[in-house]
């Protein structure tokens, strides 16, 4: 059967949309997905520090969830150094290393 008679086909084949308008709509929809940063409980912080410590001293592999406005991202690897002055720590994996800010962490788990 033709696409016109299925799903939303009848409307999609007939509508008039300016490309600039379409882009605006997609941009708007993105706003709905915008997240605010969760407040992390003291107990959770304790767990985070514990796991970072464990990884640093025992070379345990950890997975860090990092806050993003639209999407959280994940970094996996071993913590090789912690900078208390700059408030960040270095996660090394096979594909390189990454500095993670303490402010951006959502959670740290031992793998």
């Amino acid at each position: 059967m033709s696409k016109k008679l299925q799903g939303n086909g009848i409307w999609e084949s007939s509508r008039m949309m300016l490309p600039q308008h379409r882009e605006r709509i997609i941009e708007n929809q993105k706003l709905h997905k915008k997240k605010t940063k969760p407040i992390i409980h003291e107990d959770e912080w304790e767990l985070i520090f514990q796991n970072i410590n464990l990884s640093l001293s025992e070379h345990e592999s950890i997975s860090v969830i990092i806050f993003g406005e639209y999407e959280y991202s994940e970094v996996n690897g071993v913590v090789t150094s912690v900078s208390q002055i700059q408030r960040k720590f270095k996660v090394e994996s096979d594909c390189g290393f990454e500095w993670v800010d303490f402010n951006e962490i959502i959670s740290v788990k031992v793998q």
Binding site: G7, N8, G9, W11, E12, M17, R22, I25, I26, Q29
Partner: peptide, 9 residues
């Protein structure tokens, strides 16, 4: 046909 949000994506 449904009222869909993803139609423009």
């Amino acid at each position: 046909s449904p009222v869909t949000l993803t139609t423009h994506n």
